[in-house]
């Protein structure tokens, strides 16, 4: 087994996903199968191979640092689940 229940619970916490007991159970088996499959990458010797992050080689893209009009707060808040005083409202962070 490459994947244990405890690991699934740990990764779910990192990913901010509340999983049900059933989901933990099912996902442990499914992720274990996928990790078993991806194991085959270890058949390849990749010593000294440069990793590819982007297939098209490119340099950093810079633009001129110029001020432009922005769309404004009302526009930015139009899809907010909760907003107040021109801010996104969230549950209390600090007691």
């Amino acid at each position: 087994m490459k994947m244990t229940r405890q690991e699934v619970e740990h990764v779910a916490r990192l990913a901010r996903l509340a999983l049900s007991e059933d989901e933990v159970e099912r996902m442990t088996g499914q992720l274990d199968a996928v990790l078993g499959y991806v194991e085959k990458l270890n058949e390849l010797d990749t010593e000294g191979i440069v990793p590819t992050a982007h297939a098209v080689p490119m340099e950093n893209a810079f633009r001129a640092d110029e001020s432009r009009a922005s769309r404004g707060v009302v526009w930015a808040l139009q899809n907010a689940p909760e907003a107040t005083d021109e801010c996104f409202k969230v549950p209390k962070v600090i007691e």
């Binding site: 690991e7 590819t52 297939a55």
Partner: peptide, 28 residues
């Protein structure tokens, strides 16, 4: 959820080199 879990695992501490970095090298 399954893909987020797999991706989070592949990037998590202790597994990054074995999975994510390895995959990027194979991509080359």
């Amino acid at each position: 959820k399954r893909r987020i879990m797999l991706g989070t695992y592949a990037l998590s501490s202790g597994y990054y080199d074995a999975y994510y970095l390895k995959a990027q090298k194979v991509r080359t």
